[in-house]
Nucleic acid binder design. Structure first.
Lengths: 196, 196
DNA sequence: CGAGCACTTGATCTATGTCAACGGTAGTGG
DNA sequence: CCACTACCGTTGACATAGATCAAGTGCTCG
């Protein structure tokens, strides 16, 4: 529909307890595999049309469960890729029994997360981007953002618009780029606005 | 944010196995209650901000489970209201044991539904509305739509825009209003486009 | 009968999309 | 080391989809 196909960048699967660099594919819709807990980072989930185009479907952030559906269906329903550096560990932890309790908990957070994502696609452009930044910021207001294009896919805006909005936020001192190796990063920021 | 507060239209809760008219509130975020299976109709879920404004969060259609989170948290996380005439029955059916299997199934469909809703908020206006119509149509292409305003809230458009789009679809013969009591209905249609 | 509500349609405005040019950085191969 | 390419991000100029404002219709309910 409105979003461009993305080239699936594949890498060999590492052993359990994976670390993934920003941009790497984690799994593809239809693959067989495990469910994971996302320990750190941000993951994008896309649904895949019959003709293979990717369409942004949801977001997972640290603490979320990834690929639950594989426990029921045997294969992934979405394709997952890392928007920032990530680490994953197999889920469920400990006993392999499908503990009803932890399933319920993961269902509840999935619902909340879905509502958050829906909210990121409504209202004024600047509010949407700010909403995403708030969602991704840690308690101290530090954020590592996805690429402009990924932010655009998430918020249903264009990357030029995202670029302009982030420039404005810097101009208004709501966001200051962090220095990484002596230069201003384009993706790491300190946020200066109320976290809610 | 971008969406207006809606007046919560309350009604006394009926006994188990409920039928609800279009427009009625089903439950409010924070209430205690059961989980339900939606047997018929379309339900809107809103998250409620601290200041009480409602914000569209998700959609449930026939077959979906409503208010799962109450099993874990003891109270509803969202407010639910009927967008068309609905019927509900308590869930889980039969044994009160939290069957891991059916929980998983409901988690999987919740994820899919969330992805559908996200898709309804991206791309061209006419495509979004058509996407919603497809989602709500039965196998024969018959649909009972929510009000123009509710469609607008779901798709993040304005009700005037929805009205124009539906008028266009009729003009292009993709949609024909059904006759109800001799007059053209404004919400019941026959769809004439491919269901996928 | 009048009030309220949902819907329709027209005229105009504007936020965001689109197109284009350019700069910086990383990687690659000579 | 430099050239070269590819990719990502920034910024400007302009176009347009959809928002906004306004007026009017018809239905339902008291």
């Amino acid at each position: 529909m409105s979003h461009p196909a993305r080239p699936p960048e594949t890498r060999p699967t590492e052993r359990l307890g994976r670390r993934l660099a920003s941009g790497t594919a984690i799994y593809q819709a239809g693959d067989n595999g495990l469910a994971w807990r996302l320990q750190r980072g941000v993951v994008r989930l896309d649904s895949v049309g019959r003709d293979g185009e990717w369409q942004f479907a949801s977001l997972a952030i640290a603490g979320d469960i990834l690929g639950c559906e594989t426990l029921l269906l045997g294969s992934y329903a979405f394709s997952a890729s890392a928007l920032t550096d990530c680490s994953l560990s197999p889920w469920p932890e400990g006993a392999p029994a499908l503990a009803g309790e932890s399933l319920l908990a993961s269902l509840a957070t999935a619902q909340r997360r879905a509502a958050d994502v829906v909210a990121l696609r409504g209202g004024q452009a600047a509010e949407r981007v700010l909403g995403l930044i708030r969602l991704l910021a840690d308690a101290g207001g530090r954020v590592v953002l996805p690429s402009r294009q990924d932010i655009a896919d998430i918020t249903d805006l264009r990357f030029e618009t995202i670029s302009r909005i982030i420039s404005n936020l810097q101009r208004e001192n709501l966001l200051t780029p962090l220095r990484v190796a002596g230069v201003h990063a384009t993706r790491s920021f300190q946020m200066h606005c109320p976290p809610a």
